[in-house]
Amino acid sequence: MPPTAPDNALAERAHQRRTARRYPGRRRPTSRPPQARHGLRLGPKPRLPFAGAVGTLLLLGVWALASATGTLSPRTLAPPWTVPGTFWHLWTREGLAQHVAASLRLALASLAIGVAAGLVLALLSGLSRVGDALIDGPVQVNRSIPWYVLVPVAISALGIGDTMKTTMIALGVYLPVYLNTHAALRRIDARYVELAESLGLSRWTFVRAVVLPGALPGFFLGLRLATTSSWLALVIIEQINATRGLGYLMNQAQSYGQDDVVIVLVVLYTLLGLISDFLLRALERRALSWQRSLGS
């Protein structure tokens, strides 16, 4: 039933009562007509300038302050200002650059192998039923094995050299790539399948134009998780029988109680993680530029 005139009058009076309650002891503000009153803005507001850095800098400040006042003993945690000096010492005297390069080589080689393996397996099992029957089961089993318990298995099978290390890191990497890519391939929108059929697309064109681009966001999600796991796996694996790399330095520093070196190494691992994440985000933005057109 459309609202009639008396209804409107009633509504208007009710509105006036509500407004009077909201501004007690005051007249209704006259500068704005009532219907233009602004509602509460609930959507996300633009970020504050340097929002990403503020919290981090604050924490660093607290750390420095606690160290300076003696609240935080240097034996518990080395003060932050030892980082540049120790870094310089490691760089000039201990050949830090070579160690970083060694760790990077190991991490990137394992990452490349793991990502390639995860992607190929996901494509095989996501695009063919035979592949699905052969591959998906074992991978799901692998998924429920905690990665760390495989370390002794890998050592007894492959020794303690680079082969074992690369294998173990790749094992941590391929899983998130596989799981996310496979799920994305399987989730392909049935409406697009219908469209492809109605256009008479060939199987290959369908895969190339519809399935693969549709699964790309899932692949990138897997890739980012994989990169995070690769650094984590690197830290753990590198310390086994290390003769070079950041893991070797970490072992040394722990044995000799060089807390300031440990802090420098933590900073280095952090930087590696941040830089790789930044690069991946940039790559993803380029590859998925269409997603921004969906208002996400």
């Binding site: 409406r191 697009y192 219908e194 469209l195 492809a196 109605s198 256009l199 008479g200 697309l201 060939s202 064109t205 134009a209 519809v210 681009p213 549709g214 790309l216 998925l288 269409w290 997603q291 057109s293 969906l294």
Partner: peptide
């Protein structure tokens, strides 16, 4: 030679308009 128009336009969001039109 048949063609279908659905209720939703069903354009692939990852292809530009021209590429959608010439799809396949």
């Amino acid at each position: 030679r048949r063609a279908v128009v659905f209720q939703d336009a069903r354009l692939l969001p990852w292809k530009r308009v021209a590429a959608n039109v010439t799809l396949g």
